[in-house]
Amino acid sequence: MTREDMLARLIAQASTEGGELITLRAIVEEASELGATRVLDRLGLADASAQDDIDELRELLSAWRDAKASAWKAMVAWLVRGALALLLVGIAMRLGLGGLLQ
């Protein structure tokens, strides 16, 4: 019996016997399982290698986040170094050591 058949039987049972709580819960559970299966099929994640694919995507995303964080840190470090170099040049000019810079 497929999930569609089970869901149809549960809905028929609920309409004939009334909506008992256990029947309604079973309908919700079967409908959600059927919906999840359809979504996984549409995304192409219903096969046996889907878990490996998701694991690889997570590793790739983690590596991207690490690379992005490293790039930001490097950029900030270069900006700080540039600002400090300009500050040192400014101090040297103030102290009259501009001749040493030429």
Rank of each mutant, 00 (worst) to 15 (best):
A26I: 04
E56Y: 00
I54M: 08
R38D: 12
A36E: 10
Q13E: 15
R58D: 03
G19K: 12
G96K: 11
V76S: 06
W78L: 04
D41Y: 03
L95Q: 14
D41V: 08
R38G: 10
V39Y: 04
W72F: 09
R9L: 14
A92D: 00
G19S: 07
L100F: 13
E17L: 14
W72S: 13
V28M: 13
R9C: 07
G90V: 03
L84F: 01
S32A: 10
G96P: 06
D47R: 06
D66W: 04
L43G: 03
W64A: 10
G98F: 05
G99L: 07
T23M: 07
I91T: 01
A77S: 10
E33C: 04
A50E: 03
I27P: 11
T37S: 13
I91R: 00
A36K: 07
D66N: 07
S49P: 02
D47A: 09
I91S: 00
L88C: 03
A8S: 13
R65W: 07
D41E: 15
W64L: 11
T16V: 14
S49Q: 06
L79R: 08
A71K: 10
E33G: 04
A83E: 01
W64E: 14
G99K: 12
E29P: 05
D66P: 02
L95G: 04
A71W: 06
D55F: 01
L79M: 10
R25F: 11
L7A: 13
V76T: 12
V80K: 08
S15D: 15
I22K: 11
E56G: 00
D5Q: 15
E20D: 13
A85V: 06
L86Q: 02
D47Y: 02
L97N: 07
I91C: 01
